[in-house]
Nucleic acid binder design. Structure first.
Length: 274
DNA sequence: GCCCAGGGAATCG
DNA sequence: CGATTCCATGGG
């Protein structure tokens, strides 16, 4: 068993894995988490100021550090974010959230599945998708690469029971297999152009494009606006986010999203208190 | 049984 | 243009 310790000051596995940015980490009986980093099956256990990773195969420190974003200094980020009242509250509510840098193709398909759907069901569909097309790693399967899906058609996707999203997945797979969209170019293109590329996929609008760029490409300025963020913006940011937040608007978004969705901020009974 | 879910496309007016 | 409606499915 290979082991790797990552230094991640302030990191909370519970908050990070359950805040709605990823769908495959499962809490194990021993308090650790069972999931994947790209093709690697990983068990992650919280330790002081970091995370202990274990795997049956060699752990690539660069790959793991990239996924968990060792390179992003959150203490520096928080100094900036806490200038803002609402964001300060959201950080205090769940300070251990860290935005992950997940594989782009996996992120894209996961968020196509997410549309008009709830998180437990999203996870179920993704797990079935991996069972159908991914490489086995112990008792679970890795998320498949585009080439492993080249021959997939509507019949092959039927077992997922993903409903109207089926044809959207097929179009996304087609765009990546044909090279019409290239994952690497999405990391370097100006944000607006990267967005436009993704939105050529049938079933991908601005929200899913931004989720893909934020969670799947480390584009921290991408700012997905789901229903919760839209409520947050119209209630508390009528003039938009402050300029000094914009380069990291996507990370700010994750704190605001989680706070808006789970704190009861927009419930009637709490509304009067705030 | 019913309501609704990290949206987006199609179809209105 | 903006607003409304439909989309499949099943979790709570």
């Amino acid at each position: 068993m290979e082991t790797l310790i990552l230094q991640l000051p302030g990191f909370s596995a519970e908050e990070t894995f359950s805040c709605g940015q990823c769908f495959r980490w499962r809490k194990a009986a021993d308090g650790g988490y069972d999931g994947f980093v790209a093709a690697a099956r990983v068990w992650a256990t919280p330790v002081a100021q970091g995370l202990r990773l274990e795997s049956e195969r060699p752990l690539d420190p660069a790959l793991m550090g990239g996924y968990f974003c060792e390179d992003v200094d959150y203490s520096e980020l928080f100094r900036c974010f806490k200038e803002d009242e609402m964001l300060s509250r959201a950080i205090e509510y769940a300070p251990g959230i860290r935005v992950l840098r997940q594989p782009l193709f996996e992120t894209l398909l996961s968020f196509i599945i997410s549309q008009n759907n709830n998180i437990p069901r999203i996870s179920g569909i993704i797990e079935r998708f991996c069972d159908c097309f991914g490489a086995p790693c112990g008792d679970r399967c890795a998320f498949p690469q585009p080439y492993a899906l080249a021959a997939a058609d509507a019949d092959a996707l039927r077992p997922l029971r993903c409903g109207f999203r089926e044809r959207y997945l097929l179009d996304a797979i087609r765009c990546f297999c044909s090279g019409e969209i290239d994952g690497n170019s999405l990391r370097s293109l100006p944000l607006a152009q990267a967005r436009a590329q993704l939105m050529r996929i049938n079933g991908v609008g601005p929200k899913i494009a931004d989720c893909t760029l934020l969670f799947g490409a480390g584009r921290w300025d991408a700012f997905p606006q789901d229903v919760w963020i839209k409520r947050m913006m119209s209630e508390y940011y009528p003039n938009g986010l402050p300029d000094y937040i914009l380069p990291y608007a996507g990370i700010a978004q994750q704190y605001l999203f989680h706070y808006a969705r789970t704190s009861g901020l927009f419930c009637e009974k709490h509304k009067q208190l705030i």
